[in-house]
């Protein structure tokens, strides 16, 4: 038996044709996804004269771009802006989306259904349509060109609220009632009992929110005017319009900007995969 199992013909015959097709497709997909990233990285290692030389391995690799970009105060500033904004918005979403989601899931009150429908309906309005009212609102309140101006539309999201509501519905009432009998107040029950029970959903929400805000471009571009308040994507794109398009700088900035995303993916891969499955999202 052992001899038979190790014969190559048998091993091959055990690989089903479906597998081969799947692997091929995944491989092609992988190449398509990775190629732009490779070009980004490779361009960032070239000097201005080599940019249009499309070799993947630079003829004369150089770290000059990195030195220059990291030494450029503006870039550091944008990086910090993006970090602050993404972190605050993420914390805010984790807190408020779950607070509202919990309330909708676990409390019976008059108008609950209407509130829920109202929140859901905002999911159906595309961002492009919301930008104008946001802008009018921001300018009325004097929020243009401020952190708050960039952050306020995303401090709570309908999607996050909906996601958390669905998850809190899965938390057994017994858990909350036992806590009520023990004398925990409602806020503590939410914070200490219900929240820890939905950590998979919370981590999914946090990751999506962070990544979404880290890469957000359209709204930050519209609401900011001064360069100190740019987020990283907005700042990077401003390289493109200064004098001539400095591709090597843009690519270097983009490479650095990708780093946090990459780190998040590497360390939280498990949660992201689970989060995608939980949320029923497309990756």
């Amino acid at each position: 038996m052992k001899e038979a199992a190790s014969s190559p013909a048998l091993v091959l015959s055990r690989v089903r044709p479906g597998r081969i097709v799947a692997w091929t497709l995944l491989f092609i997909g992988g190449v398509i996804m990775v190629t732009p990233l490779l070009f980004m990285l490779s361009t960032s290692l070239k000097d201005a004269s080599q940019v249009y030389d499309l070799r993947v391995i630079p003829a004369a690799p150089t770290l000059d771009n990195y030195v220059e970009i990291l030494g450029d105060g503006r870039f550091t500033r944008w990086f910090i802006n993006s970090t602050i904004i993404a972190v605050i918005v993420t914390l805010s979403n984790v807190f408020f989306d779950s607070l509202v989601g919990y309330t909708l899931a676990k409390f019976q009150f008059r108008g609950r259904y209407i509130v829920f429908i109202a929140i859901l309906s905002t999911l159906m309005i595309p961002t492009e349509m919301l930008v104008l009212p946001w802008y009018l609102m921001a300018s009325q309140f004097g929020w243009i060109d401020s952190y708050w101006g960039i952050m306020f539309p995303g401090m709570m999201t309908a999607f996050g609220t909906f996601l958390m509501k669905q998850f809190f519905e899965g938390v057994p009432d017994d858990f909350l009632e036992a806590a009520r009998i023990d004398g925990l107040n409602e806020f503590t029950i939410w914070w200490k009992i219900a929240m820890p029970l939905v950590t998979p959903a919370l981590s999914a929400l946090a990751i999506f929110t962070f990544l979404g805000n880290w890469t957000a471009f359209f709204w930050p571009l519209i609401v900011t005017t001064s360069a100190e308040l740019y987020t990283l994507p907005v700042g990077l794109s401003s390289f493109a319009v200064e004098q001539s398009i400095q591709w090597e700088k843009i690519m270097t900035g983009a490479s650095i900007a990708t780093l946090p995303t990459l780190i998040i993916f590497l360390f939280l891969q498990r949660y992201i995969v689970r989060g995608v499955m939980l949320a029923g999202l497309k990756g």
Binding site: P172, D174, F175, I193
Partner: peptide, 8 residues
């Protein structure tokens, strides 16, 4: 409670 309601 029937489902114990102890916190995981």
């Amino acid at each position: 409670f029937q489902n114990y309601a102890i916190y995981p």
